[in-house]
Amino acid sequence: MTTRRPAAPMPDSIRHALRAKQHPARCVPCPHCGAAAHRPCVLRTRNQVLIQPHPQRVSEWAQTTACCPQCQVTPGVPCHEDGRARQTVHARRYQEAEATAA
């Protein structure tokens, strides 16, 4: 009987190239549906896989990876407006995150 050897670990540079077709927001877990990092979002009611990630996941990704040029916060800090935290990030932060991912 033959035995299989475990696969060699894949370098991050190759892994990134293989996942280049996916939305970069898939690198963070989805706060809406609970999908793990690098897994697609799903509809919780029908367990259907979505092509695009949920807007909450894209917002979380932008907040995690990019500085906001509008309110001048660093990555990981939520955007704010007049001293109050916003539910979503500014549109300019999305643009900055997409430029960073490219």
Results as ranks from 00 to 15, higher is better:
Met1Tyr: 09
Thr3Gln: 12
Thr3Phe: 14
Arg4Ile: 14
Arg4Tyr: 14
Arg5Tyr: 08
Arg5Ala: 15
Pro6Tyr: 05
Pro6Glu: 06
Ala7Arg: 13
Ala8Tyr: 09
Ala8Trp: 08
Pro9Gln: 05
Pro9Glu: 08
Pro11Glu: 07
Pro11Lys: 02
Asp12Gly: 02
Asp12Lys: 05
Ser13Val: 10
Ile14Arg: 07
Ile14Ser: 03
His16Ser: 10
Ala17Leu: 09
Arg19Asn: 06
Lys21Ile: 05
Lys21Asn: 04
His23Cys: 02
Pro24Val: 02
Pro24Ile: 04
Ala25Gly: 03
Arg26Ser: 00
Cys27Ser: 14
Val28Gly: 02
Cys30Ile: 04
His32Lys: 13
Gly34Phe: 04
Ala35Met: 05
Ala35Thr: 00
Ala36Phe: 11
Ala37Ile: 13
His38Trp: 14
Arg39Ala: 08
Pro40Tyr: 02
Cys41Phe: 01
Val42Glu: 02
Arg44Gln: 13
Arg44Lys: 14
Thr45Ala: 15
Arg46Trp: 11
Arg46Leu: 14
Asn47Pro: 08
Gln48Asp: 08
Gln48Cys: 03
Val49Ala: 04
Gln52Ile: 02
His54Glu: 10
His54Phe: 09
His54Met: 03
His54Ser: 04
Gln56His: 14
Gln56Met: 13
Val58Glu: 04
Val58His: 00
Glu60Trp: 01
Trp61Gly: 00
Trp61Ser: 01
Gln63Glu: 08
Thr65Asp: 00
Gln70Tyr: 05
Gln70Cys: 08
Cys71Thr: 03
Gln72Ser: 10
Val73Cys: 10
Thr74Arg: 12
Pro75Asn: 03
Pro78Met: 04
Cys79Leu: 07
Glu81Ile: 06
Glu81Leu: 12
Asp82His: 13
Asp82Ile: 09
Gly83Phe: 13
Arg86Asn: 13
Arg86Ala: 11
Gln87Arg: 15
Gln87Phe: 10
Thr88Ile: 11
Gln95Asp: 12
Glu96Tyr: 02
Ala97Trp: 01
Ala97His: 00
Glu98Ser: 10
Ala99Cys: 08
Ala99Trp: 09
Ala101Trp: 02
Ala101Glu: 08
Ala102Phe: 09
